[in-house]
Design a protein around this nucleic acid. Structure first.
Lengths: 189, 189
DNA sequence: CCTACCGATCGGTAGG
DNA sequence: CCTACCGATCGGTAGG
């Protein structure tokens, strides 16, 4: 056993925050997960909230990068929407702990930190809205359903995936992407 | 100010559990909300978890009653699905605190209590699956999308409503029901 | 429902 | 990263 890195500590924190929640996780729990004492965690970070900030920021960065890549992958709203869906699913499934903490524990952040990541999330969600709105303008999607509401529905499905998806289950990521995309597209086109 | 009833206490607990989360709510917080001391809450309940159990059970009962009513309102899967959607939205919007606690804080329950309400929830969700499956059998819905996945998508949207819905916003319950129903139906028919 | 309190646990620190 | 500890807060109780 070599010494722990700061990354090891943040990763373990993400694991526990995702599984038990932020408030139900003590610094002694985290120490136990790492094989050290609770007080020793303070050799790597200066507060418990700093850990939550780091975990949530990682997820925020992953979602942001995914969105950037999805938007530049095509000029067509239909393809952009599919890429956004595929990317979101990828982030949620490849970084479950961070994503779960981001989605469920961000409320535990202090005011200023919380507002910062809410801002990030709003920017991300606005992309879904504008892509759907563009698709309506271009005639690719139908126009009787509000673009904002459609985006909210799609994001609701995406954000719930971590609540039911099992990696060893019958659904694989690629077909989930296809099925969700088809479901969404049928709903709006 | 007359004396508080046990119902008053459970209601206040639901309010705080929904807003701050179970673990972030102390018995002293709850006392403060009620104008009494933290220790005095134990004149009405015998433990903090009992409060959570009561709040979550109330929500469970409401969802169960809504489902029962929806199923007996028609024989046609299409109408039953719409009634299920309408009922779920009604519960979430008319009993926000209980519904929110049910959806977000059930993980804080002890093992046996948690398994009991997970069972209730599974029964409830199974209704959505079977209604959609029936609709496929009868030819009312299309059959290229798995009924289980479609039910999961619809429930994902329903369960996310408490996260974004604002009573003073532009969306009213009836049109939300219509829009979601149309979105779902397009996705499966 | 209050007074007065209990043991346990919490986040965090000084010094090594 | 450990030892040894701090003040604060937690869920909960006996007795009135």
């Amino acid at each position: 056993m070599s010494r722990l890195s700061r990354d090891d500590v943040i990763e373990a924190a993400g694991r526990l925050f995702a599984k038990q929640g932020y408030h139900a996780t003590s610094m002694r729990d985290l120490g136990g997960e790492l094989g050290i004492l609770g007080g020793s965690v303070y050799a790597h970070v200066s507060s418990k909230e700093e850990l939550l900030v780091e975990v949530v920021q990682r997820a925020g960065r992953l979602f942001g990068e995914s969105a950037e890549q999805a938007m530049s992958s095509s000029e067509h709203p239909e393809d952009q929407l599919k890429a956004l869906i595929r990317g979101h699913i990828g982030v949620v499934l490849d970084h479950r702990d961070e994503a779960q903490t981001f989605l469920n524990e961000a409320t535990a952040l202090g005011e200023s930190n919380r507002q910062a990541i809410v801002g990030e999330r709003d920017t991300y969600e606005a992309l879904f809205r504008s892509v759907i709105a563009d698709g309506i303008t271009e005639g690719a999607f139908r126009s009787d359903l509000d673009a904002n509401l459609a985006a909210t529905f799609v994001l609701s499905i995406l954000n719930a995936i971590e609540r039911w998806y099992r990696p060893d289950g019958r659904v694989d990521p690629a077909s989930l992407t296809n099925d969700l995309h088809r479901f969404a597209i049928s709903g709006i086109s």
